[in-house]
Design a protein around this nucleic acid. Structure first.
Lengths: 338, 338
DNA sequence: GCAGCATTTGCACACGCTTGCAAAAAGCGA
DNA sequence: TCGCTTTTTGCAAGCGTGTGCAAATGCTGC
């Protein structure tokens, strides 16, 4: 009962073995799936382990097996609705697969990211999932060089090895373009951030191309990060033009929320009567009745499932290294008709 | 260059030692702060390590030192704005302190939580931070029993040992009560979830008590989880009463957003003209101009700083084991006057 | 009871690292 | 140069585990 005195915190397999009256190998084998152990000794070991509160030391196990069971999640802007939703799904799936998630925050652009990643390598993480928008090649290089499996989500990369999970951004952009036209819109605009990540650019280029195919031009405006505030600024830029657009496709829902708020409260422009708005991600706020934002749903659960199932699969090299998922259009009230 | 063939992925201290022409102890000491190594050999080791791409194996180090450097973050509802903001701050601080974060998702109420936690114990995490609302005693017990330091955020617990970080919930509730009264409100209500976590209940009881001191009654309504949808439901319950309240304090911002949306769009009640609303947490959405929610700011950065600085401190037992932080009132437009 | 076989068990080594200890080297005053 | 002290270095033991190998055990059919 006197915890302050006891120095030895954890019980080792040795002690369990002694209590159970077997060899240490027996207890090791009991906790190793697929090892040869008779049901009788197995039970003796389990009882002793339970009584002593034994937990296999995964540091030691990882050392022996050369496989730590750690998966490293590299993510920026954790506080953002889309990112945190994806994070939630990923940790969920990893836990279901018996893996454990190590979280690396890449918000700071100074050396601390590199430092954190090195930290993860030191723990011999088996794999990394990158859901950071940062196009920092050195990060992915470091992961690959250290023998980790790598999953890139919504990120372009021409290297061999990593699994890439992307959406049909360009196709989605084309679908929303026709939706705008069908709603009677003629003066299209695209609101983007300056982040310039591949998926954002794919949406932009897809939208411009689809509009051109429909015989329409697109006003493109970019500003700052992909956040609410940037949406407001872009609204400022778009809504003060002599020829005001009547439909805006925003690269993310956060941009769209900022845009809608500015349009309504600052410029007293009605959505969707005077201007139609669409977003991308389907964050929770898009469904809030202040917005009712028509948007494309990121299939976060599917993304997480695909990522994890590849990470835990036996063969590291499936034939197809890139998965393209479909983004469903969620129709709400920010576009006329429908 | 042929990576597919090479089996040996990581270089060991042994190899670095050979390349540098020193003993293995020398390279170990080079990477151990406070060890005795001459600048000359130190440099030789660093050069060799750089050339070979050596990274200290923290699994092995943790095994020796009986200290893994891993801090386990136990969190439910990761996708929620407040939680993800706190998570962001915590990972940031941990990285700054050279620790590494292991993320445990406790959303599923089945055995998977317990499983994941055991997983963390197997990695010999030095500490756990619990930012889960769930009052699951068995989790905290397991952490403490395995010699981890424990930080409980916005959670009540009468045990000795863990560091508890709380806000002045009751005091904040009293402040908002007087603000309501000063705005001319007389029929107060409190919107809560059924989660019944200590901090939520402290806000409720503090509000009711403060109102009573001001000679006013409070209608209390509780429903579901602390989310947007619950806010809408509570609005349904409060705004269909014969005697409609003219001020509502919501236990969280998410509840408040749901409440405001229902009030405005479903009941066509104007905020703040016909009803004043306040929230708690100061999530990003509270500042969006569709809401302009007057609310109390959770000092997430301070919380994270306090938590981490205690975790990394030398002496495990400071005199005062509970920190009570102040929640600043952020005044916006959901209450008249100001 | 015994040969023949499949299964279980224990021994011992390895994994990559830290660290106490003693030997070696370096610095220093006379 | 020599004795002394201080710093640096190498040796070797150990951290808690997995696993190949050989010995031991159990089982089957005669």
């Amino acid at each position: 009962m006197d915890c302050a005195v006891s120095q030895k915190l954890f019980v080792s397999a040795q002690e369990v073995a002694e209590k159970a009256g077997v060899s240490r190998s027996a207890v090791s084998r009991t906790f190793t799936s697929g090892a040869s152990v008779s049901p009788k000794t197995r039970q003796k070991v389990l009882d002793a382990a339970e009584a002593l509160g034994y937990h296999v030391n995964h540091l030691a196990r990882g050392l022996m097996r050369n496989e730590s069971g750690i998966v490293c999640l590299i993510v920026s802007e954790i506080g953002t609705p889309y990112r945190s939703a994806l994070l939630r799904a990923l940790t969920q799936q990893l836990q279901n697969s018996g893996k454990v998630a190590m979280l690396i925050n890449t918000d700071r652009s100074d050396g601390s990211v590199d430092l954190a990643l090195r930290q993860a390598i030191r723990y011999r993480a088996d794999a990394s999932v990158i859901l950071s928008g940062l196009p920092d090649k050195s990060i992915t290089d470091l992961c690959l060089k250290n023998g980790q499996r790598l999953v890139l989500i919504n990120r372009d990369d021409d290297r061999e090895g990593p699994l890439k999970i992307n959406l049909d951004d360009a196709d989605a952009a084309a679908r929303i373009a026709t939706a705008f036209v069908r709603a009677g819109c003629r003066k299209l605009a695209f609101a983007n951030s300056q982040a310039g990540t591949p998926s954002l650019m794919a949406r932009e280029h897809g939208f411009v191309a689809a509009a051109k195919a429909l015989g329409l031009d697109v006003i493109v405006e970019r500003f700052g990060h992909t956040g609410y505030e940037s949406g407001r600024v872009v609204a400022q830029q778009l809504l003060t033009r002599k020829e005001r657009p009547d439909a805006v496709f925003c690269a993310t829902d956060l941009l769209a929320c900022g845009f809608m708020d500015a349009a309504r409260h600052q410029f007293s422009i009605s959505v969707p009567d005077q201007i139609c708005v669409a977003g991308f991600d389907d964050i929770e706020q898009a469904s809030w009745s202040s917005y009712g934002l028509t948007t494309f749903a990121q299939p976060v659960d599917t993304i997480a499932r695909e990522a994890v199932s590849w990470l835990v699969s036996e063969d590291a090299e499936p034939e197809n290294h890139t998965i393209r998922l479909h983004a469903d259009l969620v129709w709400r009230t920010s576009i006329r008709g429908g």
